[in-house]
């Protein structure tokens, strides 16, 4: 989970970096988009790899949660945390499967919009990538869906990053706090970065 999770994070960084070119204007963004599609073979290889990582992550998530449910057996009539460092009772680490599924829903919407073009395409038929993105980001379903998706992303990664480091044994008392807070900052940066595109698109 940790390795696939971190790899997916890597993809998110690259993906966001590319998308931030929207701020640089139509020319830069369109050039980036065309460059990406120049070499279709390479793109397919990358996409297959990404899909493989993604589905492994998904498969492991379902497998582990099923196993973990069996490992508990009969649950408790009452259960409360003994952790003292918690700000709230609702914690991302208890909801990884739920936030993960939320993310999955967002991704389906996102792919339906941009890649598979399942939804009504009449608004941006024949437009350049830049205008297509702006148009899609002004769609009300997308606005809400994407913003909720980014919230899930934040929740998922706020535990996921530091958890992945822990699972890989990348841990040291000197740096534990750094890992924890940078994981949180990273998650926040990704969520805000992505959300900023949605808000920016409203002004176009």
């Amino acid at each position: 989970m940790a390795i696939t999770g971190l790899l997916l994070c890597g993809f998110l960084v690259v993906h966001l970096a590319g998308n931030l070119l929207l701020f640089a204007g139509a020319e830069a963004y369109n050039a980036y988009a065309h460059k990406l599609h120049d070499n279709e073979d390479l793109l397919h290889v990358a996409e297959t790899g990404l899909a493989l990582i993604f589905f492994t992550h998904l498969y492991l998530a379902f497998k582990l949660s099923a196993e973990n449910r069996i490992a508990r057996g009969r649950g408790y009539a009452e259960n409360q945390s003994k952790r003292q460092d918690l700000i709230s009772k609702v914690r991302p680490e208890s909801w990884m499967l739920a936030t993960g599924l939320g993310l999955l829903a967002y991704m389906i919407l996102h792919l339906a919009d941009f890649t598979l073009e399942f939804r009504d395409t009449s608004h941006y038929e024949g437009l350049a990538p830049f205008d297509k993105a702006v148009s899609l980001l002004n769609d009300p379903i997308s606005i809400i869906g994407y913003l909720v998706g980014f919230a899930f992303l934040f929740a998922h990664l706020s535990h996921g990053i530091s958890s992945a480091f822990q699972s890989l044994g990348l841990n040291h008392p000197k740096y534990n706090a750094v890992i924890k807070w940078s994981g949180l900052a990273f998650a926040l940066a990704l969520a805000i970065g992505n959300a900023s595109l949605v808000f920016w698109a409203q002004s176009q």
């Binding site: 973990n68 490992a71 945390s81 680490e93 535990h159 958890s163 699972s167």
Partner: peptide, 9 residues
Amino acid sequence: FGSCTNTSE
């Protein structure tokens, strides 16, 4: 036993 999901409980 189940697997660790780093909840620190």
